[in-house]
Computed example of a mutant assay.
Amino acid sequence: MKFFSQLQNLSLPVDIKSLLDNGNVTTLFRNLAKNTMKIIALNLKGFYKDYGASLFHALICIIKLQKELRKFSIFNGYHARFHGIISALKYQKKIS
């Protein structure tokens, strides 16, 4: 957990689901949400809408808890709804 608390730049691979199953990705994101507040840059590649609501909720929690998030990028290769990520980023902008 100490490792997570020191993260400042987080970049996830092109298809995180190929490395971990959906449940493990959600667990990773929940642990990040509980233990990180110092992320400055968050880069998600290959983040797909079919990952499930719990994964999106954990990502929203990660975004909202950051004290100095300055760069956020997400790329999935096609148009998708992002289940509240935009509103979490607006929230982040208000508290900055």
Rank of each mutant, 00 (worst) to 15 (best):
84 G>D: 12
61 C>S: 14
94 K>F: 00
89 L>W: 00
92 Q>T: 00
78 Y>A: 10
20 L>T: 01
54 S>E: 12
8 Q>N: 13
88 A>I: 05
4 F>H: 08
56 F>S: 01
41 A>P: 01
34 K>P: 02
62 I>C: 10
81 R>D: 12
24 N>Y: 04
71 K>F: 09
10 L>P: 02
63 I>P: 02
51 Y>W: 05
67 K>P: 00
76 N>A: 04
79 H>W: 09
73 S>K: 03
30 R>H: 04
58 A>N: 05
11 S>F: 09
72 F>P: 01
48 Y>D: 06
56 F>T: 09
82 F>R: 08
62 I>A: 12
35 N>A: 14
72 F>N: 01
60 I>H: 10
22 N>E: 10
86 I>C: 11
33 A>W: 10
73 S>H: 04
53 A>T: 12
60 I>E: 13
2 K>E: 15
31 N>F: 11
1 M>Q: 14
39 I>L: 02
5 S>N: 05
70 R>M: 09
79 H>V: 11
23 G>L: 01
33 A>G: 02
42 L>R: 10
33 A>E: 14
26 T>R: 06
28 L>Y: 15
81 R>W: 07
27 T>H: 11
47 F>V: 02
31 N>E: 12
24 N>M: 13
27 T>L: 15
39 I>Q: 03
61 C>W: 09
13 P>D: 10
42 L>N: 12
91 Y>G: 00
1 M>E: 15
56 F>K: 06
76 N>D: 06
82 F>Y: 10
49 K>E: 07
32 L>D: 14
1 M>D: 08
9 N>L: 08
72 F>K: 00
35 N>F: 04
32 L>G: 05
16 I>Q: 03
8 Q>L: 09
67 K>H: 01
27 T>R: 11
56 F>Q: 07
2 K>S: 15
36 T>E: 03
12 L>E: 15
47 F>D: 07
74 I>Q: 11
4 F>Y: 15
41 A>K: 11
26 T>Q: 15
78 Y>R: 09
61 C>V: 08
85 I>W: 13
27 T>I: 09
12 L>K: 14
12 L>T: 10
71 K>T: 06
58 A>E: 08
4 F>S: 06
68 E>F: 06
53 A>F: 13
90 K>F: 09
75 F>S: 12
85 I>H: 12
7 L>T: 03
39 I>R: 01
75 F>P: 00
10 L>K: 05
23 G>P: 03
3 F>T: 05
62 I>V: 05
82 F>H: 10
29 F>D: 11
93 K>G: 07
22 N>W: 03
89 L>R: 00
42 L>P: 07
24 N>T: 04
53 A>L: 14
35 N>P: 05
35 N>T: 05
41 A>D: 12
25 V>K: 12
91 Y>D: 04
58 A>V: 02
51 Y>F: 04
60 I>K: 11
92 Q>Y: 00
50 D>L: 01
